[in-house]
Amino acid sequence: MVGLVIVSHCIEIAQGIRKLASQMTPEPVPIAIAAGTNDGRLGTNAEQVTRAINEVYSSEGVIILFDLGSALMSTELAVECLPEEQQKNVVILDAAIVEGAITAVVEISLNKNLKEIKDVLKDLSINKMN
């Protein structure tokens, strides 16, 4: 099963999205979150993203959705620091984070592969990677 990582500045946002998305499927889907700073403030950091990726990583791949600005930078940094053979299985997508997470969970629960899910999520892109 493909894993999903939610990166947000705010732990409550990430937890809320996980809750909302998990509702879409009776069987559990691997979802990890990386949100807030280590000392409980708003923000993101690459270390937490790395931990979240490892939590749900399998060779089937991982999809990462993020909220704003530095969430993308922390995520890119985390992915660059992964071993090369893992990097190619991890994709960062700029879908609207709530809709993207819900859609991803549905697709994951249908056992779609990484490429198929990526294609579906493309339609939900809000162009925040440029």
């Binding site: 403030r41 923000g43 690459a46 930078m73 922390s74």
Partner: peptide
């Protein structure tokens, strides 16, 4: 250790 954009 930096939470914002300045960290990365």
């Amino acid at each position: 250790n930096v939470g914002g954009a300045s960290g990365p």
